[in-house]
């Protein structure tokens, strides 16, 4: 990490679909525009795929400032409007301590240690066993 700068991830963050859940993995340092784009993409993905949950894994994120904090909170708010729950998974200790010091406690967000825990929290047990991710009773 200390030797040389890592290239920041530019452009799109892929939004994966896993059963009824959308899975997003944030990695490294994000451009503000990338985060804004993600907010839009997730909104569209929830509406389009009729997902019931969103898991955002941030174990690869080294800092969360108030901007990224706002993006996470807005994703959760948007998802809630579309009847989906959002779980932020894998926040690093140093990031958590800093966010608390900064005054960002994200009260509306659910959190989990890992993506697996997050999926369990959303009640989406073993989504792999249901290929296609069709919901029972979906038309």
């Amino acid at each position: 990490m200390t030797d040389g700068f890592s290239r920041p991830a530019a452009g799109h963050v892929p939004v994966l679909r896993l059963g009824d859940v959308l899975l997003v993995t944030l990695q490294g340092d994000l451009y503000d525009s990338t985060a804004e784009q993600l907010l839009q993409d997730i909104g569209e993905a929830i509406a389009g795929d009729r997902a019931t949950g969103v898991v955002i894994n941030i174990s690869g994120v080294e800092i969360v400032d108030s901007f990224l904090g706002r993006v996470l909170a807005e994703i959760a708010a948007k998802a809630r409007l579309l009847a989906a729950q959002t779980v932020v998974a894998g926040m690093r200790p140093a990031v958590a301590i800093t966010m608390v010091e900064l005054g960002l406690t994200l009260p509306g967000l659910r959190t989990a240690l890992t993506t697996e825990d997050a999926l369990r929290l959303l009640g989406a047990t073993d989504p792999v066993l249901r290929p296609g991710g069709t919901r029972p009773g979906s038309p």
Binding site: G90, M91, A96, I97, M99, V100, T111, A112
Partner: peptide
């Protein structure tokens, strides 16, 4: 209290 809040952010 900060420890409690930070643990919550991590999902614990």
């Amino acid at each position: 209290m900060k420890t409690v809040a930070a643990a919550r952010l991590m999902g614990a």
